[in-house]
């Protein structure tokens, strides 16, 4: 997706943090040298095009309960079925197929640690496959985005 320079700057400046003040969009406008209305309409268009997945708060998962990254090695011929079962299990909010013996990677969440374990035990029982449980032990860089190399994009 080709974006103009102003959209690129909007993302460069505000993909990590935007000002949480009385008039956030006006402050962004002043920084970028455009009007507040233009900031608002550009953000709305980018959101509508799904270039921005959201303009707003990113909540700390650990404070809303427990979560962990989990993986299973699904037999290739059953991968769709296994993936569907994982997706319909309570608390699953991400599920990626990856090219590896462990070919399904998902995030399981729950209100607390005990419920999380129960949900994983239940899913394990349902899938009849062992679940690799990979909770975060230490976070070094937690979902803060990365520098976008606009020239390298198609």
């Amino acid at each position: 997706m080709r974006l103009d320079t102003v959209d690129q700057q909007l993302i460069n400046h505000y993909q990590r943090n935007l000002p949480v003040c009385e008039r956030p969009y006006r402050e962004m406008a002043d920084t970028l040298g455009i009007s507040e209305d233009e900031v608002i309409s550009r953000l709305a268009v980018l959101q509508q095009q799904q270039v921005l997945s959201r303009v707003g708060p990113v909540f700390e998962h650990s404070q809303a309960g427990a979560s962990l990254l989990a993986a299973v090695a699904a037999p290739v011929e059953q991968i769709d079925l296994v993936a569907a079962r994982i997706n319909s299990a309570p608390g699953v909010n991400h599920n990626y197929a990856r090219e590896h013996l462990y070919n399904l990677w998902f995030v399981m969440t729950a209100p607390d640690e005990d419920t999380l374990d129960e949900r994983l035990d239940e899913l394990e029982h349902q899938l009849k496959l062992p679940i690799l449980r990979l909770p975060m032990v230490e976070g070094y860089h937690i979902d803060l985005g990365f520098d976008i190399d606009w020239d390298a994009l198609p």
Binding site: M1, L10, I11, Y14, Q15, R16, N17, L18, V20, L43, L46, Q49, Q50, V51, L52, S53, R54, V55, G56, P57, V58, F59, E60, Q63, I142, D143, L144, G145, I148, L153, P154
Partner: peptide
């Protein structure tokens, strides 16, 4: 820390 950050979060896949 309930809110980790407030941001314009890009969809990297959509960006290319």
């Amino acid at each position: 820390g309930v809110i980790r950050r407030v941001a314009a979060v890009p969809d990297h896949y959509k960006l290319g």
